[in-house]
Design a protein around this nucleic acid. Structure first.
Lengths: 352, 352
DNA sequence: AAATATTTTGTTAGCGCTGTCATTTTGGAT
DNA sequence: ATCCAAAATGACAGCGCTAACAAAATATTT
């Protein structure tokens, strides 16, 4: 009596089981699984029923080995704020789950001497099909060049720097100008600015927006009213020490992010300055922190989660388009999101 | 003329190339790659040199398909605070990188009716070798039972609940008792407590610690001095509204985490209560937030990153031990970490 | 030195899928 | 009906590794 090969097979359901159950070849099952065309609807239904009945899910390793892509994308980040990363990951994961892709993280240390090398090494090792870059990694041309050299698709969440490619952005310049406008309309004329970390592209755009806002209100730009921060609360506190001890301090200060605004607020509290009566403060990002300060922080909302979701969708589209290699997916596309000003408790007309 | 099969092969270096370059069979290369014994040191060196020279890294899909494990572990989380997740991921990633494992995330929605099912589905689909569970997912017996049913190794970061298995913990009870001790030593006798989200195991332990602390100072427990919070700042503000409007308000309040402490501080500010002169506040977790409040928050430090790292190491050990199936790795092991009290600006002797 | 145990290396058969190409079936146009 | 293009399905060879087993080289014992 002939005995068929009988490996224990770890009890897992394979594509063969589905094929047998639905009475088609494994190739047809594969077609259904991958949404390929030219499958009769009735056949498709039969296969899908079998998949459900057997609770089958394809083996990602086998798919990756046999196919042309791994269905994995990578997220590269360096020194993000926890909150930023959190919202980003949530957005990415949502898009990945819908598309059946996995996410792999890579966090090169910020002071990495060879960031581009570290990233290409990660790509070689993890076999991701594409990469998502968040600030400030997406702002570094050397990294982008390296990825283009190995023809790896990527999408970035970055400021509008004019570089072609896939990505999402908010118009930092516009949003910053709006903040200044809000302050000038309240009657402020001496407005301080805490700039962000120099490695971030957004830092420059926000500074530009600040200057545009001043220009519109016909206020002259003063170098002494700009303090170089680092996107953390310590630098906000230092900025406070600097601004509040100035012979002629500003009546309002625009911090390039919420954490620095929090540090600034601390400095004001320590000096017994009343906010917003004696000093107006504006942040940027609308982090949960902005709602935990007292008074509640006026800030700019960034739809980070949604931006990350869209960036991921753009990336996945580009990956899938590459597999069919029709020229349907655009080579370059940047979607710009609104970043509305959220007026809360830290801004008011100046005290005279 | 005979022509060997010549697929483009995508230009990737494979184990065959390494074998050829070093003059051994692919199996020997595989041995070196997997740190298997019985390879002559000189051979090992030759292979390693070839790996380096060719910049080879093994294909994870091929490894996963041929081998018994995928070298991927999963992290399950539901509703974590961004900061908690951030530190956890950093710790996990560090351990994973050292061991050559990948990390896959799964974030079932908190109100998931069938959490255990969602997790086992994730496992079936992603083929992870093991799971890391953080609060409150690791506190749910149904989830743990489900994982044991499919024999999937897991490690959890959870309070000391006495359940056997792998994991790390801080002694929440002890830390909480210490907080109360700190307050009673300052002279407080009416101490309020904001408890945490009822789904978290830590909530119970911290409440117990609070009661133990009172007991030690010979202060009677009063139900009216406990407010049920939800680990978010809103509930902290609500707690503030409740406590501060009490006919005989407490002189100190211990919030089960920093966010609730922040909300409470807001409520105090709004009512013009001086902190710490009229009200002492203590938080739990030592989040960055605790250093952005004014005054700086007295709180308890949790070495989250390090705990996550150790939990991952325990998990990976258990996975690898399973592959060689010697009984060397312990079935149950919980490492307890210190959670020191960080006294900052929100606690002082009561005003009388 | 022969015999045996032990270490070291190699051979081969898949793992579970997808890509390629061959084959069958179907729906029209003649 | 007859032929033909298009749609639908199938057969089969790998993808790059590891597991199991086989063989060779070396060390140890008698």
């Amino acid at each position: 009596m002939h005995q068929k090969r009988q490996r224990p097979n770890s009890g897992r359901v394979t594509i063969d089981d589905v094929a047998e159950q639905s009475g088609v070849s494994i190739k047809t099952v594969s077609r259904v699984l991958n949404n390929e065309p030219n499958v009769r609807p009735s056949t498709r239904a039969r296969v899908e029923a079998a998949v459900l009945a057997l609770d089958y899910s394809p083996n990602p390793s086998a798919r990756g080995l046999a196919g042309t892509h791994s269905r994995m994308i990578g997220l590269i980040y360096a020194n993000p704020s926890p909150n930023y990363l959190f919202r980003t990951i949530n957005g990415i994961l949502e898009a990945c789950n819908d598309a059946g892709y996995g996410l792999s993280l890579h966090a090169p240390s910020s002071e990495q001497p060879d960031l581009a090398g570290s990233i290409t090494h990660f790509v070689a090792q993890s076999r991701v099909d594409g990469l998502l870059l968040i600030p400030p990694v997406g702002d570094i041309p050397a990294v982008l060049d390296a990825l283009e050299a190995i023809h790896l698709p990527y999408a970035r969440i970055a400021p509008l720097d004019g570089r072609p490619g896939l990505g999402v952005a908010v118009d930092d310049r516009h949003a910053s100008a709006q903040i200044v406008e809000h302050l000038t309309q309240l009657g402020h004329t001496r407005i301080g600015f805490i700039s962000g970390h120099p490695d971030h592209g957004a830092t420059q755009s926000r500074l530009e927006g600040y200057r545009i806002g001043l220009l519109r209100a016909d206020i002259e730009f003063e170098k002494t009213l700009v303090f170089q921060g680092l996107f953390n609360s310590e630098s906000g506190r230092e900025a406070g020490a600097y601004f509040l001890d100035l012979p002629e301090p500003p009546t309002a200060i625009f911090a390039s992010n919420d954490e620095m605004a929090a540090g600034l607020l601390q400095a004001a509290h320590e000096r017994q300055w009343q906010v917003p009566e004696q000093l107006s403060i504006v942040g940027f990002d609308d982090t949960p922190l902005s709602r935990m300060l007292c008074p509640l922080l006026t800030t700019v909302h960034q739809p980070i989660r949604h931006m990350a979701l869209r960036a991921t969708e753009l990336l996945l589209e580009s990956i899938e388009a590459r597999n069919v290699s029709d020229g349907k997916s655009p080579k370059s596309r940047v979607e710009v999101f609104d970043a509305p000003l959220i007026v809360r408790g830290t801004t008011a007309a100046p005290n005279r």
